[in-house]
């Protein structure tokens, strides 16, 4: 019974492979529970919206669709850049990876900027979180929660960028980047849903 007493070549890789599987599943489960959180609020929104007061409720103007569409395109675009950032990292193309990641972060920040403009416009029309009935409650809660996720994502990606500059990840071990990409895609995809239910229907 000579148990793994001497760490040998490749054992560390074995360790990485196994912990990676654990961490990947754990991270996906985290995303699932986050999805449930969003779904619950979306259920609340749908429930209130269909409670027979008409939508938008009297006295409420919806946020402008033009800016909303542009903002959506920006966020979806950042998803595409993030995807290719990871692809390039996998292929060892570090410079292109870094630029794409920076570009992703900038697009994310732009999205938040667009969101801020949208909020200011609504505030100017006296549509607020607490003072505008169920529209204000559901719109600001859901988009605010999503915006908070984007903000966290920006911070997360910045940390990943700094880490990768310091050589934390290499071609064999880059689970952190995979997780970051998963998270960023998740935030994008949530916006597909939120965009549809708030701006399109």
């Amino acid at each position: 019974m000579a148990v793994a007493s001497v760490p040998h070549e490749g054992q560390a890789d074995q360790l990485y492979v196994e912990t990676r599987a654990l961490r990947l599943q754990g991270f996906l489960l985290f995303l699932v529970s986050d999805l449930v959180l969003f779904s619950s609020f979306i259920f609340a929104y749908m429930y209130l919206r269909n409670s027979g007061q008409g939508w938008p409720p009297p006295g409420i103007t919806r946020p402008a669709i033009a800016l909303g569409g542009l903002n959506a395109a920006i966020l979806f675009g950042s998803g595409a850049t993030m995807h290719y950032a990871l692809e390039n990292f996998k292929r060892g193309n570090f410079i292109r990876y870094a630029w794409l990641l920076i570009f992703t972060i900038i697009l994310g920040a732009l999205f938040l900027g667009g969101q801020a403009i949208e909020y200011t416009t609504l505030f100017r029309e006296h549509i607020t979180w607490a003072g505008s009935g169920i529209f204000g409650a559901s719109f600001f809660t859901l988009t605010g929660m999503h915006g908070f996720h984007v903000l966290c994502g920006i911070i997360y990606l910045t940390i990943l960028l700094l880490q990768s500059v310091h050589g934390v990840y290499d071609k064999q071990r880059y689970f952190g980047l995979t997780a970051g990409t998963l998270y960023w895609h998740f935030v994008d995809v949530i916006w597909v849903v939120l965009f549809s239910i708030f701006y399109l229907v």
Binding site: I65, A73, F76, G79, Y199
Partner: peptide, 21 residues
């Protein structure tokens, strides 16, 4: 896949085919 769907939605919005203000 969902991202591609999002791209279509954004395009259609920009073309003012869908979306309400």
């Amino acid at each position: 896949g969902l991202l591609a769907l999002g791209g279509i939605l954004a395009t259609l919005t920009g073309l003012q085919i869908i979306g309400k203000s």
